[in-house]
Amino acid sequence: MIENFHEIMALWDKHLLTMRTIEHLEMFSIALTISVIIGVSVGVIIYIRPGIASPVLNFLNILETIPDLALLVILLPLLRLGTGPTIAASVIYSILPIARNTYTGLKGVDSKYIYVAEAIGLSPRDILLKVRIPMSLPLIAGGIRIALVFTMGVVTLGGLVAAGGLGTVLQNGIQLYEKDAILLAGLWTGILAVILDLGAGRIEKKLYKRYGTWQPQK
């Protein structure tokens, strides 16, 4: 048992897993932050201009169907090797779930609240900021949670294009056929993803309790 533990720690240090984890989480946070900013903005914009909603969502849907490996490779000539294409690919995948949920949330706010908001003298801008957006937060969080899973996957794949992070350990392990390294890094990546998703799930649940009045439109 103890021996095993020492072996694992040796393997961990040999493959610089602490540093790789930090790299991994760094890329992950940057990618997810950008995705949230762009995704929510796109959601709000297509809500304000409903005419462009359907073409924009269709376009994002098309991007979504490109296999992730292909997308990474396509981005290489533009952004060269490393973190650039990895983050870009994560963002491209993550905009759709966030934008779509934002848009659905904003549109789906029960009309009785909008009616009251107008009647007591809220301007359209106040209604968006004080009523629609807060009431859509649970749904937006749901979209971000989907994006989180996408981002975790793409960032791991980034090891193939020398982006660093835990994918690099997996990549090296495969090339040198080090079974133990593959197993350790794979398991660790999986655990990280599960922890992050659990955390996001809890936040989402909290938001539902606080703001959860969203109902599908009749």
Partner: peptide, 29 residues
Amino acid sequence: VRLRRNMGYVIQNIGLFPHMTIGENVGLV
């Protein structure tokens, strides 16, 4: 907007905003 802030409006199903406290609801405008 100016006009409506000069009149009070009360309806049957009240429509308090569920994501705001009582204080925030009353103090919104």
